[in-house]
Design a protein around this nucleic acid. Structure first.
Ligand SMILES: [Mn+2]
Ligand SMILES: [Mn+2]
Ligand SMILES: [Zn+2]
Ligand SMILES: [Zn+2]
Lengths: 168, 168
DNA sequence: TTGAGATTGAGAACAAATCTCAATCGTGGC
DNA sequence: GCCACGATTGAGATTTGTTCTCAATCTCAA
């Protein structure tokens, strides 16, 4: 009982951002190039959906979860399925453009990290605000701990939960 | 369409651990007293199920998730529903007997912390092993970060993921 | 231009956690 | 000890985030 109509056709809107070797009315951005090269190197295809998602991610200057993200796209009239978003974000992660922050809450959130450095998070339990911090000292101590145990660290999550100064 | 039969009766097995002022064939443990006092103070009832769960938690000397925990109880013939476990563990948390460790993986896990100190975790992505560590220096640095931002920290999660020395 | 193979979307499937509510239990007051 | 009544339980339903399915569709190297 699956709907038969699909991709209600229409505006292909290639915008020239992706055309293999066509003129570029809009110069390709860094992150577009990064993503394109990544896809190519992996034998993956540069689809309209993937590009739309990429652009949208880089318009967000904040942390976001997938549902919220999907909703915003729909409101703008950008037709991309939730499934594609769930499939594309891990790709963006793999090429280092996006970071998935697995929270201790139920939903993971994402943020683009184009050229940004690793950091950890303070999460306000009242208003949901997410603040960032980076402590070289903490990072060093973690490395030290792993070294002592001969544990090969691949990643870590440090999330401090509490109340921000506005909610105290 | 709910089953009508309930609590297939039988062995009440009070074991004397909970009797209000009866003789105590088995001396009450610390944690039993802690839990009992907590329940009393909150006007909650000391039920067979809660006691069974408590005992079982303190037989586990490791981290466990609820489903695994429930399964083990069933195998032993201890009849307690998953729902009751989901309801009781937060109580044990509130009275400080148990710690819920929200991981970056999907399932949270628990551990009893009777008299034990806060610590953080190294998780091996190959074998699933969980190792513990405690770094006063890291804790201090976190406090410092919160102070600087006037953030009131209630809890934190620090989980380092990677490969343990046996899996490297 | 074309076809093999990758991708998509809608909804189904999954899984952890929470909720529902009738049947049952625990406890303080008698 | 017995009672009454609020608390608790269990089985299944529900919720919710995420992943899977697969026919239709698209992409791109040749
Ligand atoms: Mn961040
Ligand atoms: Mn632990
Ligand atoms: Zn806040
Ligand atoms: Zn291991």
């Amino acid at each position: 009982m699956r709907k038969t109509k699909r991709r209600e056709g229409g505006k292909t809107d290639n915008r020239g951002t992706a055309g293999p070797s066509s003129r570029r009315p809009v110069p390709e951005t860094d992150y577009e190039a990064v993503f394109r090269d990544f896809l190519q190197a992996r034998g993956l295809k540069l689809t309209r959906e993937r590009m739309v998602i990429l652009e949208e991610v880089f318009k967000h200057d904040d942390h976001f979860d997938i549902d919220e993200f999907h909703m915003k796209m729909r409101k703008k009239g950008l037709k991309v399925s939730r499934a594609s978003i769930y499939r594309t974000l891990p790709l963006l992660q793999e090429c280092g453009l996006v970071d998935e922050v697995k929270t201790t809450e139920r939903q993971a959130f994402y943020e683009h990290i184009h050229g940004r450095r690793h950091h950890d998070h303070l999460v306000c339990l009242s208003c949901g605000k997410v603040m960032e911090f980076y402590s070289p000292a903490i990072e060093r101590l973690q490395e030290e701990i792993c070294r002592r145990r001969r544990f090969k660290s691949l990643r870590h999550v440090l999330e401090i939960q509490g109340h921000c100064k506005d909610c105290a």
